[in-house]
Design a protein around this nucleic acid. Structure first.
Lengths: 153, 153
DNA sequence: TCCATCTAGGACTAATTGGGTCGTAGTCTA
DNA sequence: TAGACTACGACCCAATTAGTCCTAGATGGA
């Protein structure tokens, strides 16, 4: 379809949780998992992936856990998603080995990539800090239709 | 992950094809399938779904086929995608029965829905006619980051 | 120093989804 | 009336994803 994987979901939840508990020294995977009713095993896995991409810092040992590596405002949702699910690609063509087998025929790919870029822009403008805010702007982005683009030229 | 299903891809391809052949009376499923190297069975399925959502009109009988039901400029990519894959929902929460089991706890859902809406906007601004154009605008949409939004207020 | 507690990470299994096929019935036109 | 096409549902197979388990390694505190 067209949705986030659950793991990416969990990743965003975890990042938001960490953002809200920055004063604490570290949050363990099981602590976060318990709070949201997720298997701690799975949450640990997600956090490991985030740690490997240096979005969070792992602290070993007893009373260890995870902390944000950067300020919440400097981490975009896109970073979190790509860290867990890999690069975001709308077109299934490009997923595998650079191009689908019908590159020359599949004429739709090129315009779709521009759509893809637009979505990437949306995701990269959303930061973890914004997810943590309670009240937010009703509109995250302002969209200009083609008509308006044409009219403004 | 985060990509279009192949069927949705095929649907867009078919719509674009139909848009480019409006002068012809009708294009059969197998004709389109052959041109892009897709199974005709599958393409027929996709077109049937599009027909059920009245995006295309099916013409029975010999020398039958499909035609666009509206002008290409009046059909958005979003319509095509939802016709085939169902509603576009980023959050896996809402997919099933209105809400995930941890509605109260999963605090991330609400901000994600606004992201979802942004993506819907992007998709709905892209029309089939635009997919058919050979040369296109480099930017489909103009994006405003939060900073700029804040600054302009 | 030793133990409890945590992360690290790979291997593995279960479950879900999606891609694709087939067969049959219905519908139209030449 | 025959041929060609759509309509639709049932079905199967492959691939991806979700989730579990187990062992090893690191750290801080008693």
């Amino acid at each position: 379809m067209f949705k986030l994987s659950k793991k990416a979901d969990y990743g965003l939840i975890a990042m938001k949780h960490l953002a809200n508990h920055r004063q604490k020294h570290a949050c363990s995977a099981s602590e976060i998992a318990e709070e949201y009713g997720i298997s701690s095993m799975l949450m640990a896995k997600v956090l490991q992936k985030l740690a490997r991409q240096t979005l969070v810092v792992a602290k070993h040992g007893s009373s260890g856990g995870y902390q944000l590596a950067k300020e919440p405002a400097k981490i975009s949702a896109l970073e979190v998603i790509t860290a867990i699910d890999g690069p975001v690609l709308i077109t299934s063509c490009v997923t595998n080995h650079g191009n689908c087998d019908a590159t020359d025929r599949c004429s739709i790919k090129e315009p779709l990539q521009r759509v893809n870029e637009s979505i990437l822009s949306v995701l990269s403008t959303v930061s973890i800090a914004q997810l943590s805010e309670d009240k937010q702007e009703p509109a995250l982005v302002e969209l200009k239709g083609i008509d308006q683009l044409a009219a403004s030229r």
